[in-house]
Design a protein around this nucleic acid. Structure first.
Lengths: 209, 209, 209, 209
DNA sequence: AATGAATGAGGCTTCATTCAT
DNA sequence: CATGAATGAAGCCTCATTCAT
């Protein structure tokens, strides 16, 4: 509120990145033209270049902002009382943030770009590694995670959990608009919740009992 | 067999699609130029247009060929003696085909393209649905799958299994060349095997026993 | 003297022209951007437009200032006791003024610009004509010039002298930084001095004697 | 004639360079747009890029062609019976070639470009050095040049001669269209001829006589 | 069937110029 | 007076596509 106009330059950058996100999600990084972005942002093409060196820099800044958003979510997840609640926070965020909405298409494009742009690959790998390390840590510390099912280590569990989240996000881009995004997320959440319970319900205790 | 070289037009199409796969995986659909593809195929640009209406058609044909390859794998998977062996066949193929190699980058690009090209989306959704239906069926028929862990239905189990596979494939594009593709696949396979065993080892029986 | 700082607007114009000279010499008229000039002058872009209608006007003003500088030199040259000393004053100035330094590159650019900008062409032609007329006059009045060598008229002698000066200036822009500008000027001066002496040593007298 | 279509690629390059010469002379290197050149050549913009990497390459190729043309002239000059005739061949060519016409504006622009583009500077310096060395040699070998007037060495005489030629060429760009190019050349030739005679008429003989 | 020269629309980027503050 | 954010036309260059050979 009072912060809104503290730094107009940052506001502009955000405005441009918001527009870029929409365009990138709609057309892809390389199919979205600078003109598309400027139109979406309601500014002129030239103005983008006052805030970003070039298109590459816009993409990199988007990746960087994505990274910082994910890291924020990780902080919040760390503070949840139980492991499952932490995972739920992460999963919900990883799927779709609220403001600005991280569209699945953007994330898939980010990975596609990462496969050939080392700078982007580093950013994505970095944020992913940090997140996975955080979850590995959460698992290792939580009572449920200590003796997880299937003889899986905390690291492997973390890998599985993130793979599922990514895989579901990837699936999202195929969906026509029949189902609302909220419904889809709810349905997915139900499935992963059962997976998590399965992974972290200490079956050995059941056997012992 | 005897049909293989009867239709030279099909050979040309294959040759072009093989080249396109390499280029698409290396540069992405829209960053790869028709000239790149023609050079990779060792033919002239104009010749591509004798076999494909335009670039879009090449992409669509690639998606279509991908579909048929996956369906072939599904056939093989169906014939495996156990559910876990079926899954292994599918997982290995989904990661990387042998000839021509289906590179992870291509699949990620395919999903990215699907998010904005309805024709491609339909193809990808179709093949995925068919595969998932097939696996759902396999699970429902197999003794291990009937009463799976966590109260998950065969459909949900299938969703999980495919999500994990996709998620791991997506992760692949981030990897630098440190690890060979074979090693990575082996490591992934070990993790998913344990997941599958966990999902399909009927823990309720353990409790009952 | 007392007028020097009476008109701050003139100071601003000078400041801008000084900066423009540096930028024009470094990048050329059309490669130097208004932003370059404003940065070199340590002012904002907009301010330039308070003192000059547009970029063309800056170029024209530069040409005009160059003209007045040359005319000043001509005045000084006129007052020299001998023809050769007059020429030396002119030659030295034509090569490189002291403050602000008239860089050779600027002059070559000025002629290049003159070849397509009639306004600039008029200015340059005007100053050149004035200078040449002045020198023609000097020659005609001086005892050495009256019966110059080779049967050349004062006008032709003047043309030759200016052509040599321009040609040497043009040569300067090719030089790498090996030789200092001062050294180069000295070497050139030596050659032209001998030319002048050759032109104005009345050889006919020698013959007659 | 029969050579005209031996290599159509070379023809295209020549065609483009011819057009570029016209545009460069008319507007300057950086003011001439690629579209201007393509229009002058009667082809599309894209086609230029099949024969030249970029605009810089066109400029460099023009400089290179200029170099080869000058070298040809030097060869012809070498074969002239007397020193003065050699100089006349060189001077006429240095001013304006016939096919394709080397316009003065182009040469002035070339020097302007050389002052900031090292690649062009090297080319121009190279051709100039070769030409001057050639003339120095001609002077040193010729009976007239051995004991030139004014105590000038062959190298200094060569410098003077080239400076005059350059200076006159530079003067050309100022001329309005009143005088035809031929008339101007004739007038200039008359002056330089007298200079050359002055430089190379062995005055010592006069004295001795 | 096959080539690759040719086209031209469209993308990225720069920069002269304006104007609200 | 002075600033510099903002504009948008225009330039360079790429590339999907066509077509004469």
């Amino acid at each position: 509120m009072s912060q809104t106009h503290l730094d107009p330059a940052l506001d502009r950058r955000s405005q441009i990145l918001d527009a870029a996100l929409v365009c990138f999600a709609k057309h892809g990084f390389h199919q979205a033209s600078m003109h598309d972005i400027s139109a979406e942002a309601g500014i002129s093409v030239g103005l983008i270049y006052r805030y970003f060196e070039n298109k590459e820099a816009v993409i990199a800044a988007m990746a960087d902002r994505h990274k910082r958003e994910i890291q924020e979510v990780l902080e919040r997840a760390r503070e949840a009382p139980t492991l499952l609640e932490s995972l739920e926070i992460l999963f919900t965020a990883h799927c779709c943030e609220n403001s600005p909405k991280v569209l699945s298409a953007f994330v898939v494009d980010l990975y596609a770009e990462a496969s050939r742009n080392p700078q982007v690959a580093n950013l994505v790998r970095d944020v992913l590694q940090t997140s996975m390390d955080g979850v590995t840590d959460l698992i290792a510390r939580s009572p449920e995670g200590k003796n997880a099912a299937g003889g899986l280590t905390p690291k492997e569990l973390s890998e599985l959990i993130f793979a599922v989240a990514r895989g579901m996000l990837m699936y999202d881009v195929l969906q026509p608009q029949e189902m609302t995004e909220a419904e889809r997320r709810t349905a997915q959440l139900e499935v992963v919740r059962r997976l998590w319970r399965l992974l972290f319900t200490n079956t050995t205790e059941l056997v012992e009992a």
